[in-house]
Every structure is written in C-alpha cells, then in structure tokens.
Amino acid sequence: MEKSHDLPQVLLLKPPLDMEVFGQDRFSSDKFRFLKAWESPLPLDQFLQAHAQSVQAILVSGGIPVTADTIRLLPALKMLMTTGAGLNHIDMPECRRRGIAVANAGSVPSEDVADLAVGLLIDVLRKVSASDWYVRRGLWITNGDFTLGSKVGGKRVGIVGLGNIGSLVAKRLEAFGCCISYNSRKQKPSVTYPFYSNVRELAANSDVLIICCGLTDQTHHMINKEVLSALGKEGVIVNIGRGAIIDEQELVRCLVHGEIKGAGLDVFEKEPDVPKELFELDNVVLSPHCANWTGETFNDRQKYVVSNLEAFFSNKPLLSTAVDD
C-alpha cells in the first residue's frame, strides 16, 4: 500500500455536505488523498498555482463554482466529480475544451428527488401544509371545515426534462392515474408519452407542470410569462430542478394575482433568499432545496463518489459521465 503522501491528489475547494455529515473517514481510500484548499492560509489562486502540477481531480459540491479560471490554473486536471446532479456550477465548455471528464452522482439521488416532486404536488393539490396550519392554529374550531382541495388522479401532467428524475416522476404519477406528456431537448423514441417540442404548448395542454431539467443558458428563465399564462389559472407548477429555470419574479406575480393555482418549490433563484410574498400564500409549498436529503441517498452517494474516483485513478471506466442537458 502506498504511503498517503505518495497518493494522487483530489482537490477539495470546500468540504461537501456529505463529508460534513459523515466525516472524512467515510471518503477515505487507498487510491487517492484529499487536498483541502480551505485549510491553507494562501489565497485560492496562489494555493492552486502551488499545486498546479499535482491535482488530477476535483471533488466539488453544488455550492462551489468551478470556473474556467480555476480550471486553467490546473494543467494536470483530468477529472471533475460533483456530488450533485446539476452542472450549472461547472464551466462545461472549458472542461470539453480541455478533455476533462466530468462525473456526477448519476441516478443515486433520483428516487428521492422524484418522491419529493410528487410529494410537493400532492401537498399543493390536497392542501396538506395549509390544512396542517389550519388545525394547529385552532381555526378548525373557530372557522369550521377547511376548504376543498383538488384530486391528483386524472390530472394532465407536463414534465419538463424526461431524464432519470423526470422518468421516475412520470412513473409515480401514472400510478395515480395522471396523463403524462413531456418536453425535452429531443423526443425520446422509446417513450410513448406525447412529446411537445415547445414548452409553452406543453403548459397549454397541462394542468400541472413539473420542472425536472438542468439549468443551462438555454433553460434559464425558460418558464416565463408566456408559459405561465399558458398553464393558466387552474394550473400548478412544481420545481425540483433549479430556481432560475423559472422567471421567479413573474411566478410570484402570477401567484399573488391568482393567475396560476399554486406551486411547490424546492429551489429558488437566489438561494437561500426566498421572495417574502410567497410566505403569505397558502397555495404555495416551500422546501429548502433538500429533495435528495435522505440518509439513504447521502450514504449511497458517499460510496458512489469514492468508487468513481477510485475507478478514475485505476484507469477504469467511470461509473457515470455527466451530460449537460
């Protein structure tokens, strides 16, 4: 077994949340060692320059950007591993230009994220959080019966982004008797759901819009005034993708003025800041970007991260390669 200081280095710009939860021991390996930038007194650019020839891989979480400037300071970099599914914090064009392999958590968190998407939808339609608030404040006694909710079964659900997560959301909602259609970059030949190349047309033919795609230049503010207007006054939107896929200011306006029926939101445009107007609305369910926050996902993801890094340093195929769609 190699001595620790002889092992190849994996750069950590900041400890991932998984490491803070489980501790570094759960990420240890005899194939690599971690280089912890935050422990150095040097400014980051100087720290990177000092280790420029030795860093072959970076392990990064969603809250830390990996910019072209960072990548250019690391000529030996060949692999980038991110603990999340999204890639909007990584300069993918620079990675492609350099031939740097980018891997994410693959399908590890997909089941949990899909579960929360469905949970948010049920909560909004059946007013679970609103009725909980009603009971807790004694309003059932003083005001009588609660207001009517809306049935989940039979709803026309449009899914934006039919990847791992979107497909699992569709499968779950089919079991409720929902009618599924979707929008994606390309139509999927193996999928029988109706396909809409235009997200506005998808919204116009849906009662519910569920955002499952990644954030890119093309999807930024893709859900805009026209799309929300097409969804209409009886429409509900659920977002477990990224906040900036929706024009948040326009969404808030539509919700405040009753131009859409409700929303279930796990992600926001300027996290952790959430528009205060949403706090007063009982038809909106809010979640602090925690769709994949389960002990099972964190445990499985820790194993997956280590296995992927070990595969890289053993010159074996990566368990997954990320695609920025």
Rank of each mutant, 00 (worst) to 15 (best):
E2M: 08
K3P: 00
H5F: 05
D6V: 04
P8K: 09
Q9S: 11
K14E: 14
P15V: 06
L17V: 15
E20D: 05
E20L: 11
G23F: 10
G23V: 07
K36P: 00
W38E: 07
P41K: 11
D45W: 12
F47T: 07
H51T: 03
H51V: 04
S54G: 09
A57C: 09
I58C: 04
I58Y: 05
V60F: 10
I64M: 15
T70G: 00
L73A: 03
L73E: 01
L74Q: 03
P75A: 00
P75Y: 01
M81R: 13
T82A: 03
A85P: 00
G86Q: 05
H89S: 13
I100P: 03
V102G: 03
A103G: 06
N104V: 08
A105F: 14
A105G: 15
S107G: 02
V108G: 09
S110D: 09
E111M: 15
D112W: 11
V113P: 12
L116F: 02
L120F: 04
D123I: 05
V128T: 03
D132M: 03
W133P: 01
Y134P: 00
R137T: 14
I141M: 10
N143M: 11
N143H: 15
G149A: 14
G154A: 14
K155D: 05
V160R: 05
L162M: 15
L162H: 07
L162Y: 13
I165T: 10
I165S: 08
G166R: 10
L168T: 10
G177A: 12
G177W: 15
C179P: 08
C179V: 15
R185N: 09
K188Q: 14
T192E: 13
P194A: 07
F195V: 06
Y196A: 09
S197E: 12
N198S: 11
A203L: 08
A204L: 05
N205Q: 13
D207F: 08
V208W: 09
C213L: 08
M222A: 07
K225W: 13
K225M: 10
L228G: 13
S229D: 05
A230K: 07
E234R: 09
G235K: 06
V236S: 08
N239M: 14
I240W: 10
G243R: 05
E250C: 07
C254I: 03
H257E: 11
E259R: 05
E259M: 04
E259F: 04
A263Q: 09
A263F: 11
L265T: 00
V267G: 00
V267K: 02
E269A: 11
V274G: 02
V274D: 00
K276R: 15
K276P: 01
L278C: 08
L281Y: 10
D282E: 12
N283I: 03
S287H: 09
C290S: 09
C290H: 07
T294Y: 13
E296N: 01
F298A: 02
N299E: 12
N299S: 12
K303W: 14
K303M: 12
Y304G: 01
V306G: 01
F312Y: 12
F313A: 00
S314Q: 14
N315D: 01
N315Q: 02
P317E: 06
L318H: 06
S320C: 10
T321Y: 06
V323A: 07
D325F: 04
D325I: 04
